[in-house]
Amino acid sequence: MVALTALVPAAVGAMAIVGPVAFGLDLVWPVWGAVIPFVVWVAGAVLATWPQETIQRAWYGYRDPTAEEHRRLTEPSRHALRRLGVTAGRYRLMIAESDGPNAPAVTGRTVVITSYAAKTLPPDRMEAVLAHELSHHIGLAAVPVFSYTHLTLPIRALWWLLTRIWRPVRRMWAIARRWHTPFGFIVSFVLTVAVALIFVVLMIPAGIAVVGAALARLSTDRTEFLADAAVADLGLGPQLLAALEAAIESGHIESDRVTRLLSIQPLIVRRAQRLRKRSAP
């Protein structure tokens, strides 16, 4: 419930995008115009879940383990699945290219670990890391991750638009310079003004959305702590702590904008601190 409550800012941020669109369409097409953005939102959530493995490969660059990684992962994954009472065919293991030990928690049947973990961790620590990632998928632990993924769909869509909105302007400017005629420069100027106005209008909901998504990251941090607690209950707390401490000592510390903005310690450090306290006599 705490993790779900922390998702409220993400919901507010998403509504800052979907709400104005629904209001504008409602003025043009009463009732149905207001419904369409929410239908598209739900359809996007379904699309992101249904063929998820394909999307994860294309959008996030997740890949299958190499032959060597598969060899190193076979026994630890078998032991982790047995500890959690999960059948081997229920999940598919994929690799995220990262120098840190913490992989993103995803929804669906995919379990992700980092290339750093797959290549460097000894079997017992690998088992603990795999148990941590599997714990995100079991029971109610999957709900906050699933909710965060779908609540931030409109935010990610708007961010995608804002990063590409100036491309037509740059292309038109290149064409105008090639033509070297007044007409080309006039069209380029008009297009620049139009895109600038759209950009300014979108910046307000985008600002609200980005802040909401950033604050909601506290919810995903909470799910990491819960997964660590589940691993400790399985008797793998010392192995997971050893994996985190080794990564910290070797400088594999990932810190995102949210933690830097809030001046809090990186997630991996806070996870290690909680595990130390949990294992203290």
Rank of each mutant, 00 (worst) to 15 (best):
V18A: 06
P123K: 07
T223I: 11
A3K: 01
L244I: 01
A11Q: 05
P266N: 10
N102A: 07
G108Q: 09
H70Q: 15
D124M: 08
A194R: 06
A206W: 14
G251N: 10
S77F: 14
P238R: 06
A117M: 12
A141Q: 12
F225W: 03
I175P: 00
T149R: 05
R274G: 09
V2Q: 09
P122S: 10
R257D: 15
G33A: 07
R217D: 12
V86K: 05
A45W: 11
Y91W: 15
R222I: 02
R109L: 07
P9I: 01
H132F: 06
R57M: 08
P168N: 14
P51W: 12
R125Y: 06
T54P: 00
G61L: 12
Y148G: 01
E127T: 11
V145N: 00
D64I: 10
M172D: 09
A6K: 05
A6V: 02
V258S: 06
V40G: 05
V210M: 12
A105F: 04
V2T: 13
T223C: 02
Q265C: 00
V112Q: 10
L236R: 01
A105S: 09
T110G: 06
D64F: 12
R271E: 04
A214Q: 14
E75C: 02
T49E: 12
R274I: 06
F23I: 14
M203D: 09
I268P: 02
L130A: 02
R167C: 02
T114N: 11
A45G: 15
T259S: 15
A157K: 03
R156K: 13
V200H: 06
H136S: 01
A229V: 04
G33P: 04
R274Y: 04
